[in-house]
Amino acid sequence: MQGNDDMNQMKTADAAVPEEARGLDIHAHADVSNYETTGDPLLDNPKMSARNVNVYYGEKHAIMDVSLDIGGNEVIAMIGPSGCGKSTFLRCLNRMNDTIPICRVKGDIQLDGEDIYHSRQDTVLLRARVGMVFQKPNPFPKSIYENVAYGPRIHGLAHNKIEMDEIVENSLRRASLWEEVKDVLDKPGTGLSGGQQQRLCIARAIAVSPEVILMDEPCSALDPIATARIEELIDELKERFTIAIVTHSMQQAARVSQRTAYFHLGKLIEVGQTKQIFTNPQHELTENYITGRFG
């Protein structure tokens, strides 16, 4: 594994695993496996950093020793064949995996240098800072207004109706949905079209002003026009947010992201600048995938 030096320099809050043991682990891992991360998964000043993350669903080892940094205000795309663990890794970043009883997460994940799996970490605050948009649009069966206001309300972000109206309007504007729904705010969010629903979910996510937004195949249920709008949106959102997006569309990854990570069977195979990954992949598996030889 490359970037070992960087890693040793990192002063992580993870005291449970001594540095040497971790180093040993990596080598043992490299011995049994043909794959190791190509390219540099680490950044200088990361927004989020994951180190030696292993995830198990019961007996199943779903993520194997993945280390990856996500920089501030960047869009990082995660690609790879179905079942390779993209969603699982993404869900580790805001501890959504906690909701799955059989899921165990090992390793060290930090947000702004703080261990998010620390026992004192409050998942409520974490998820307010690291929001999520799901594959299938899942608006609440409430009005459009209430959908957006839900997050700010539970976090007490607005002190009165005027402030709340402002938050709702701003979020809907930033999700470029405002013009379409400003007259029907009291209609149920479930009555919108699929693309509108997904933009509503994005508005709902940004209404709590997160720092990172995780998107798990946000366009897989949408038509090309709606997809294009969401991609534009992601481009605008990266001014303010850090975005990690899982996608099955290579074109989408190429269009919206600055960096791309390629996963395969639970391992992070290659990371690099998006342009480089798509024009000059270093690893054979990556090359096979993006040239369509499998996946």
């Binding site: 307010a128 929001g131 799901f134």
Partner: peptide, 27 residues
């Protein structure tokens, strides 16, 4: 009630209690 409702609410930083009171029970 579909799991996607629970995930949506929890993903926004709601506690289990808030999720039950504000999303699951109404639904």
């Amino acid at each position: 009630v579909p799991d996607s409702m629970r995930e949506a609410s929890l993903g926004l930083g709601a506690t289990m209690n808030e999720t039950i009171r504000k999303v699951l029970i109404p639904a």
